[in-house]
Design a binder for these strands. Structure first.
Length: 906
RNA sequence: GGGCGCGUAGCUCAGCGGGAGAGCGCUUGCUUCACACGCAAGAGGUCGGAGGUUCAAAACCUCCCGCGCCCACCA
């Protein structure tokens, strides 16, 4: 055993392995200290290679999830913890089921995002990134990646994520660089990638183009300004409206709707630009909405996508009046040159007012403006030269079909619709980024303008042989490499054994915010390049917010740092809390410290229940006693446990994590601890060693299986306890409890389950009675069930438990109702006499009875009203009607009893 | 302009055709030999509003009112 880590040492205060293995002499502190236990297990699991997956011979034994690679921009936040927790639950369960469960770790280079944070850091040091030069800058980013990549790995390990670290990948590692190259070249050769000059979404701050998906539209209060263009022939004016009046410097035409009577005669004519005297043609175009504004539109082809298209159709020239930083360039009238776009807006307006061309302004005017998803600057539609695009029409079809025909299932299902309709409206994807950090576009240009795209870096132009070739300075959109993640991490384009076994992946878990940016593109590229769906299931979860549903942000000061939580409450606590909140129905997930404390309390509850059971366990593998020795409460608990197993499995099969967590919580706390342990305690301390041993065995057996059930959600505390059973090396690879197993015990427990409701209500009713009368817990009362001899069947097998839990000295059945001096409690319609004599306060008793009487009367009235309805009697199912009739009888009996008692009390 | 989600106990949310639930918070008892990160008992909801379907609606349909989100080239 030399050198085997013993993660539990700190908690057991040095109890040695042998003692732990035999279960004797185990000291468990009264509180579970997650912070001391978890880091040891986290390391130990990895050291022992438990998370390493082999490539199975039988592909049906393969189960694979790839981590949504976190950006190397910085440390992980609780949002990441949610997704990783859900994935870990799935992977750990699959692993326990005996599958080769591979969870691929890795990170994303996150082109623009990382470049921005590194630039910011450099500027803080007083260095202008552009001065550094490309090579040195990229080196700096790699250094950044090493630092934060390491921190992210540390965080993931600490939270217990069972990733196969032997297979860690990075979107810019050697293999993935190759995969990106192959993908680009293949699509280029298929005509799915092309180079073109188009308006792109330009971020003037980050100085790069963006795809449509990277632009966030937001409603802002702007202004709608109307001004006049004089007709060139001096016969009048045309009024146009705009929210960005500075763009009029780049106007090259006026457009009206072809059917618009008002302008029919003007089409073909021109207006004169007031600042530089250019004549702008008036053209007709169907894209113009004649009902908006004046029905005439100024056309700025170089700075508006609609205008660009109009210009293409009408043959209007492009006039680019902005530079890369969105300042007015030399193409505009001289007096505006060099102005920023917002200053220019003001200056143009003033100039128009001077020339008496200003008509009116509407302010505030609410309209939608695109912003950069990284830096939030306003996006400028801009001509930035030739850029590379992916022609999505060649990819959409198969990606849509895969979701429509059920090969890919979305959970919850509603996201499928969102996905399909997004694909439907998708336009070509701009993949050129004017950045330094990323995959360099594998295209080379010679002085004659030939383009060479190739797998290997070329020495000469493929068309003319010129050796004077230069590579495209741009890099690819970061999502271009991310989209290959499900297969590139498995070795694609090589046909590796991993790719053969683990592709398609089983499931992808991610937040809805990257459904389009990432998920949709993985499906498109997976279908096209890897020849199959990338994953069978897509699980979409909400975004983690603070306790009141607000976004977590540094400025609000409500950010929860996962590691802080791990240290304070434990990773298990956070994991359980997140799982319990992950309902799927709602869009976002409010996480509060209270909720995490709830998880911590649960871990502590498990720990303490285990303390009790393990102290009593004689040692060895927990085995059930023979069926005939099982008591009714034991059979009941077994049956409840089995229901819990079934419920958890059914929930997880549907990715209903909250329901699964809730089922475990309810079973363990409310049934196993509150009732099960409380009932068994007596037997555990029995003088008869056989009785005590049986009780311990039953409790231990159920506990051990429950630990396995809980393990995927709370890996640490379950492992820590499970070790003490001494039945194996690790719970990580212990078998997963299936619903079908031990079905026999369910049957075995059915009699006890049928008895249970009466037993539970009897105990609760007596407890309530005692509480209402302040009867001290040490005072024993007698319980007499009024009825025939068979009345005892109502609590058969639970006699001693009822007595102990209700604080009774005796329980019996009496045939006649000698009720003198007794309180009469009603339990499921049966009368239970409690001889109390002077014990009770008569006023309190009157109050109690009056309250119960009201409840009974109300209940009866409800049921009678239902039965009075002929439609109900005729049309409702028989059993429902019968149940209603029984209710009336019961309420009647109860009410009668309460009235009698009240009368007796006077 | 389209589409989606949500309005249920003070808070955060389950439930989605047959007598209103959980956690937290609150009240009252418990130094009960696993756990006060606990135990027991309790208070607290015209299930956003109005119609409709049904014997029966928190749940299904329609409309309305409030939140929130996504998509979209109306200047």
């Amino acid at each position: 055993m030399c050198g085997v880590p013993r993660p539990s040492q700190s908690v057991t205060n040095g109890v040695d392995t042998l003692e732990r293995m035999t279960g004797s002499g185990t000291e468990m502190p009264t509180r579970y200290e997650a912070g001391a236990v978890e880091p040891r297990w986290a390391d130990s699991w990895i050291e022992r290679g438990y998370f390493h997956a082999q490539v199975p011979d039988d592909p049906s034994r393969a189960y694979c999830i790839v981590i949504p690679p976190p950006n190397v921009t910085g440390r992980l936040h609780v949002g990441h913890a949610l997704g990783r927790t859900l994935e870990d639950i799935l992977v750990r369960r699959a692993r326990m089921r005996g599958l080769e469960a591979l969870w691929v770790p890795g990170m994303d280079h996150a082109g623009i995002a990382t470049q921005v944070v590194v630039e910011r850091e450099l500027r803080k040091e007083g260095t202008e990134p552009r001065d550094l030069g490309r090579e040195a800058f990229v080196e700096r980013v790699w250094a950044w990646k090493e630092r934060y990549g390491g921190e992210i790995i540390g965080q993931l390990k600490r939270m217990g994520a069972s990733l196969d670290w032997d297979r860690e990948r990075f979107t810019m590692d050697e293999g993935l660089v190759g995969a990106v190259r192959v993908a680009f070249v293949r699509w280029y050769e298929q005509g799915l990638i092309y180079r073109g000059e188009r308006l792109v979404n330009w971020c003037p701050t980050d100085q790069t183009g963006l795809s449509d998906s990277e632009v966030e539209h937001e409603e802002v209060d702007g202004e709608l300004l109307t001004f006049r263009y004089p007709l060139s022939d001096g016969t009048g004016h045309v009024e146009v409206a705009t929210t960005r009046v500075e763009t009029m410097l780049g106007d090259t035409g006026i457009a009206v709707h072809p059917d618009d009577e008002r302008y029919r005669d003007l089409v073909g004519g021109t207006v004169r630009h007031p600042f530089d005297g250019r004549d702008l043609p008036i053209v007709a175009d169907g894209a113009v909405d004649p009902t908006f504004g004046t029905g005439a539109v100024k056309v700025t082809p170089a700075h508006d996508p609609t205008d660009f298209e109009i210009a293409q159709r009408a043959g209007l020239p492009l006039l680019n009046i902005l530079d890369a930083e969105a300042r007015i360039n030399q193409n505009a009238a001289e007096e505006f040159y060099g102005l920023g776009r917002y200053d220019a807006r003001q200056a143009v307006r003033e100039e128009l007012e001077k020339l008496d061309l200003f008509v009116s302004v509407e302010h505030p005017y609410r309209h939608s403006v695109g912003h950069c998803y990284r830096c939030h600057s306003e996006i400028e539609p801009w001509m930035s030269g030739l850029q590379w695009f992916v022609a999505v029409d060649g990819l959409k079809g198969r990606a849509t079909e895969a979701a429509m025909d059920g090969r890919i299932t979305f959970w919850p299902e509603r996201w499928r619709k969102a996905y399909v309709s997004w694909l439907d409206g998708l336009r070509d994807w701009n993949i050129s980024r004017q950045l330094w950090w990323g995959h360099r576009i594998p295209a080379w240009y010679c002085p004659d303008g030939h383009v060479t795209v190739s797998l290997e870096d070329p020495d000469a132009c493929a068309a003319c042989g010129s050796a004077e070739i230069e590579q495209d300075p741009d890099v690819l959109d970061t999502w271009f490499s991310s989209q290959l993640w499900p297969f590139s991490t498995l070795g694609w384009p090589d046909e590796t054994p991993e790719l053969g076994a683990f592709y398609p992946n089983a499931v992808l878990v991610t937040g809805y915010e990257i459904l389009y940016l990432w998920v949709a593109r993985m499906i498109m590229s997976g279908m096209s390049l890897a020849g199959d769906i990338p994953f069978r299931d897509v699980v979409i979860h909400g975004l983690v917010r603070d306790a009141h549903g607000r976004k977590m942000s540094k400025s609000l000061g409500n950010v929860i740092d996962p590691v802080e939580i791990f240290d304070l409450y434990g990773a298990d606590a956070l994991r359980f809390s997140l799982a319990r909140l992950a309902t799927g129905g709602q869009q976002d997930i409010p996480l509060s410290v209270d909720s995490i404390q709830g998880g911590r309390n649960f871990a502590n509850k498990i720990w303490n229940a285990a303390r009790l059971v393990l102290e009593a366990l004689p040692g060895g593998e927990p085995q059930l006693p023979p069926d005939e020795r099982l008591t009714a409460p034991q059979r009941w608990l077994l049956a409840r446990h089995q229901h819990c197993v079934a419920e958890v499995n059914a929930s997880l099969d549907r990715y209903e994590f909250a329901a699964a967590a809730q089922a475990m919580y309810r079973f363990f706390w409310s049934e196993y601890c509150d009732w099960g342990l409380e009932m068994e305690k007596e037997r555990l301390r029995s003088d008869d060693p056989a009785v005590a041993e049986d009780a311990a065995k039953v409790l231990a057996w159920i506990l051990e299986r429950t630990l396995r059930l809980l393990h995927p959600v709370m890996p640490f505390v379950t492992e820590e306890i499970w070790q003490r059973f001494g039945i194996g090396e690790t719970i990580v690879r212990a078998p997963w409890p299936e619903a079908e197993e031990y079905a026999g015990h369910e049957v075995l427990g059915s009699d006890a389950e049928a008895t249970w409701p009466f037993v539970e209500e009897l105990v609760t009713t007596v407890r309530r009675f005692r509480s209402e009368h302040g009867i001290p817990s040490k005072t024993r009362v007698e319980l007499r069930l009024v009825g025939r001899e068979t009345g005892a069947a109502r609590y058969a097998g639970f006699e001693s438990e009822v007595m102990r839990l209700a604080g009774a000295s005796d329980i019996s059945v009496v045939t006649a109702g000698d009720a003198t001096g007794s309180a009469r409690l009603l339990v499921q319609g049966e009368t239970v006499l409690v001889p109390v004599g002077e014990l009770i306060d008569l006023d309190a008793e009157r109050e109690r009875l009056q309250k119960r009487l009201t409840e009974a009367d109300e209940g009866r009235a409800r049921s009678e009203a239902k039965l009075a309805n002929a439609g109900f009697r005729d049309k409702a199912p028989e059993d429902v009607v019968l149940a209603e009739k029984l209710k009336v009888e019961r309420f009647e009996r109860e009410a009668e009893s309460f009235r009698e008692q009240l009368a007796e009390l006077g």
